[in-house]
Every structure is written in structure tokens, then in C-alpha cells.
Design a protein around this nucleic acid. Structure first.
Length: 503
RNA sequence: GGCCCCAUCGUUUAGCGGCCUAGGACGCUGCCCUCUCACGGCAGUAGCGCGGGUUCAAAUCCCGCUGGGGUCACCA
């Protein structure tokens, strides 16, 4: 039970070593990615090293698919790493599932130095002991096996038991200076001796995470707030590792605010908004998503919130991260994303639209999918879609689809005036005889009929037509859209709208 | 329940003792631009949880309360 004597690192500049160390369970969560982003930004700002390690110590929950998604996520976003998965480095391997020997070695040393001791009591027995002693069972383990006698140990072994290994926690207050929250102190007795190794020798996260951080020389641990209360435990472990020469210092810690969902709860993995790839599928570009994620706890300036990754890496400061929990606001995220889309060149935008058209089945080698396959069409359509794109792929898909069937957005339906069908019907009649189905000619015809003859306000006149054509309230320029779609498709969509039940 | 964290418009964020009759952004509302929605421009809406201190002066510092969250696993 040595008191904490290990020094805390004061590494700066290119001595900084940070890591992103997810466990591959499920699909990448935006909160997790925010953590990756901040670590990345800190490394890039300081000129330090960004390490990507995988914590796959729970074979029952980890999956290879999830692992691949994690790698894909960072690659897609452009968060490059200097050491770790795929790229290698001086501390290979970077997957914990392949580091078993490393941990066994540390466990032996820790045990030999008396920092770990054998614990034979199971959860039920611990609870019973607390109850018998009048202690609140929620207090957890009572450290009663610290000085087990040989005879007691032999009796357990005779019963066929195998011990878990617990760390001796010193009886002292534990303080550290959190990079985002300042000084934090946990009073002595805040937690009991905890398990680092399962019966049978399987090391737990409580051991392997600090062991790898120590071995890999991690200087700054930036992670979610949910790990805040395990920090004093880790400091105790670091101290033990320092004692046996495995750790050279205690890293600095910074706990990033939670990413909240609806209500006052953490954005759960069940919530679709938490799924990084769902945002990508909906048409988020990396620039937009990264910018929004950065805003979840950090800001570049008081009067500005659109910025690039490059700008972030030049001005990121962990000390200016806001400790408040941040709510994931889809509307704001959409707005940030669309601002970035508008910053794209037309050519760049067109390239980014391509994958969406492909996955929508609009670009194939099938000769009957002629419209989307037509380069001229595609260029015009994507260019037109660019101006108002909230999300990539959204509008272009509509303009290039060969279908008269349109998916209607709820907001679009709600925006319709009472006489929507009459308006569309009138539009249909005046468009039918049109020889020249160019934007100008369409506009002239609709204007003469709806605005001048029927005296409708332009909003009332064109709104229903827009919705009928696109199913949406916001679209690329209406008349050009109709031209791109062509006469047959345009009229087909108007007709389909007329026989569709509204509301 | 023990321990820890958090607390500025609906949301997010600026503010680190006087520059604050609290600024920006998203949202919302209105107007302008456009014979259309959007984009863009302009205007408006709305906030320092409560109570004590400290100070000439507090959104800003301290204490308490209240509220919210997290964590107490042989998960990570």
C-alpha cells in the first residue's frame, strides 16, 4: 500500500502521445468519433503522435465487422493516425487480443511486488459479508482478503476455487488536474480494492487499458466523462506500475463532455442519430460532420462556427473544451453540413454525389437506366442540386430517378394549400400540349395559367407543383428540374400526385 | 445510498470581476431578393436555476441549496 509517488508527465509539443482506443462493439457512435476527433486535433495541434489501438479484450462482444467499421470511419473522415492498426509502430501489436503475453508479464511483476493479491470471494459472498457486517451492500468489496493466511488459501483451493486478482488501493485522497475540469479530488475510501484479473488469468479492461497506455507512453488521456470516476483507480494502478518499472509517469487526463440525445440522457447506441454511418448515408460529408462534432464541446471563436479540419488542427486547445454536456441537435448538424456542401466546387460536389446515385441504383450498366447514365443529365442535375443541397445526394437522386413514384416528405404534405390538387391539375392541362419542354417554356406556360389567369399567388401556384414533382418542400429550381426530368416523367409525377390521397 | 461531474436564450456556444442595458450560431417569426421553395440580406423572439456571502463592482470568485448527469462489475 504505497502512497502515490509516481510523477505526472508534463510532456508538451512533439512529446505528446495521445490515443484513440475503442472497443469494436457495434457500429461507430458519434460520441466515440468526437473523442477520436479531439485526440487527433490535440496531436496535430501539438505536433505530437496520434495512436490508434483496439481494445478487443471481450471476445463475446467484439466483432471483426465492428473493427472494420471503426477503421473505415476514421479513413472516411480523414483522421489519420501515426501509429497503430495497419500502419504499425514501435509498440506492436495494437490489438489487445494479441497482447496476452504482455499482460501476463505485467501481472507477474505486479503480483511479485505485492500490489496484487488473490481474492477468492464471489459476488454473493461479498454481499453476504456486507449484510452480516451491517455495511451497505452497495459499498462493494470489503478488502477482507488482503492478508489471507496460507491455510485459508489452501482451503479455497481445495474447494476447487481459482482466485481473481485485486489491486491494493492505498488509504489516501487521490487528486489530479483534469485538463478540461481542473482539480478533482476523490476522498480516500471512495472505492475498494478492485479486480484486475479474472479467475483463470484473463486480464480485464481495468488492467489492460492503463498497461497499454503506460507501455505505449501515452502522455494525455482524452476520453469521455463516463470514465472520469475510474481515473483515480487508474492512478493507483499507474503508481504500482511505476513501482515495478512498467510506467514512467502518470499521464494527464482530460474528460470530454457527454453527447446527449433527447431528454436528459446520453445519446444511446439505440438512437439512430448516434450512428455515424447513418449520417453518411443520409448525405453528410466529412467536413460537415466533423465540424458539427467539434462544436460538441469546443468552439473556434465567439462569432463563428463554420470551419475546416485544417483550421481546427491549428487552433484546438483542450483547455478550452467546455465541460457541459452537449446535445446532439440534428437540425444544427444539417445546417452545418449544408454550409460545407455549399463551399464545395461543382466538380467536387458532383463526385460526392456519385456514390449516392450508385447505391440508389441510378447509375448502372443497364442501358434502360438511360437518364442517370447520361453524363449531360447527370452534370446538369447535380449542378442544380448543389445550390440547395442540405445533404449530398438528396436532390440529385430525385432528378435522376426514372420513376414517377415519389416519396413524400411529411413537411411537404403539410405545406400544401387546400386547393393543391386543383392547382396541379391546371398545371398538368397546360403542360400537356407543350412542344418545347424547356425550363423557359414551362415557366411561361405555368405562369400564364396559374399566376395570370387563375390569379394565384406564386407561392400557392408553384408550391403544389414542386411537391408533386419532388415530394419535397425544398428542391432545385422547379422549371429546370422539370426539364431535366423530361416531359413524360414530369407529367407522370403530376398525374400520380392527383390520384394520391393527401393527409 | 457513497463518491464524482455539470448548471448562460428552445438548442449550442461567447463570457474567465468593471468593455454585459449578456454577443454569435441553429431553430422560430416578419420583411427584402426571386413571377416558386431554398440560398443570400435585414429585423425580431428568447437566457445568466435559487439563496447567502466576498467586493466600490459578480453571469464571472466562495459557500449552501435545488436540479440534472455519471459511476460504484470477475463490461469496456
Amino acid at each position: 500500500m504505497d502512497l502515490i509517488t509516481a510523477p505526472t508527465t508534463n510532456a508538451t509539443g512533439n512529446e505528446v502521445r495521445v490515443r484513440f482506443c475503442p472497443s469494436p462493439t457495434g457500429t461507430p457512435h458519434v460520441g466515440l468519433i468526437r473523442t477520436a476527433l479531439f485526440n487527433w486535433a490535440y496531436a496535430r495541434k501539438t505536433g505530437g503522435t496520434f495512436i490508434f489501438r483496439i481494445e478487443d479484450t471481450d471476445a463475446s462482444r467484439d466483432s471483426e465487422e465492428s473493427y472494420e467499421q471503426l477503421v473505415e470511419a476514421l479513413r472516411w473522415l480523414g483522421l489519420d493516425w501515426d501509429e497503430g492498426i495497419d500502419v504499425g509502430g514501435p509498440h506492436e501489436p495494437y490489438r489487445q487480443s494479441q497482447r496476452g503475453e504482455v499482460y501476463q508479464d505485467v501481472i507477474q511483476k505486479l503480483k511479485a511486488a505485492g500490489h496484487l493479491y488473490e481474492s477468492y470471494l464471489n459476488a454473493d459472498e461479498i454481499k453476504e459479508r456486507n449484510l452480516a457486517a451491517g455495511r451497505d451492500p452497495q459499498m462493494g468489496y470489503d478488502n477482507s482478503e488482503r492478508e489471507l493466511s496460507d491455510s485459508e488459501r489452501e482451503r479455497y483451493i481445495a474447494e476447487g476455487r481459482e482466485p481473481a486478482l485485486r489491486l491494493r488501493v492505498p488509504d489516501q485522497d487521490i487528486s489530479f488536474t483534469d485538463l478540461v475540469r481542473g482539480e478533482i479530488t476523490f476522498p480516500k475510501g471512495s472505492f475498494p480494492d478492485f479486480v484486475l484479473v479474472r479467475p483463470g488469468g484473463q486480464p480485464l479492461y481495468t488492467l489492460v487499458n492503463p498497461v497499454d497506455d503506460a507501455l505505449m507512453g501515452i502522455t494525455h488521456v482524452l476520453r469521455g466523462e463516463d470514465l472520469l470516476s475510474s481515473t483515480p483507480r487508474q492512478i493507483v494502478l499507474y503508481n504500482a506500475m511505476y513501482d515495478i518499472g512498467v510506467a514512467k509517469f502518470i499521464p494527464q487526463f482530460g474528460h470530454l463532455p457527454f453527447v446527449m440525445g433527447e431528454g436528459n440522457k446520453k445519446l444511446s447506441k439505440r438512437n439512430p442519430e448516434s450512428n455515424l454511418f447513418l449520417h453518411r448515408d443520409r448525405g453528410f460529408i466529412p467536413e460537415g460532420l466533423l465540424n458539427y462534432l467539434a462544436l460538441l464541446g469546443w468552439s473556434i471563436a465567439a462569432d463563428r462556427d463554420i470551419f475546416t479540419l485544417e483550421e481546427m488542427k491549428q487552433s484546438f486547445a483542450i483547455g478550452s473544451v467546455n465541460p457541459n454536456p452537449a446535445r446532439f441537435d440534428q437540425k444544427k448538424a444539417d445546417a452545418i453540413n449544408s454550409a460545407h456542401i455549399r463551399l464545395l466546387s461543382d466538380a467536387d460536389f458532383a463526385n460526392r454525389v456519385l456514390p449516392y446515385l450508385q447505391s440508389a441504383g441510378l447509375i448502372t450498366s443497364d442501358p434502360t437506366a438511360k437518364r442517370a447514365g447520361n453524363h449531360q443529365h447527370r452534370r446538369t442535375a447535380t449542378k442544380r442540386a448543389h445550390d440547395r443541397a442540405l445533404r449530398v445526394g438528396w436532390h440529385a437522386r430525385l432528378l435522376l430517378s426514372d420513376s414517377a413514384e415519389v416519396e413524400f416528405e411529411q413537411a411537404a404534405i403539410e405545406s400544401l394549400p387546400e386547393n393543391a390538387k386543383e392547382v396541379v391539375s391546371a398545371a398538368l392541362e397546360v403542360l400537356k400540349p407543350l412542344q418545347d419542354f424547356g425550363a423557359q417554356s414551362i415557366q411561361a406556360a405555368l405562369n400564364a395559367e396559374l399566376v395570370e389567369r387563375l390569379e394565384l399567388k406564386p407561392r400557392i401556384a408553384f408550391g403544389p407543383v414542386r411537391v408533386a414533382i419532388s415530394g419535397r418542400r425544398v428542391t432545385p429550381p422547379l422549371f429546370e428540374s422539370m426539364e431535366i426530368l423530361g416531359k413524360d416523367l414530369s407529367l407522370g409525377r403530376l398525374e400520380a400526385f392527383l390520384i394520391r390521397p393527401l393527409r
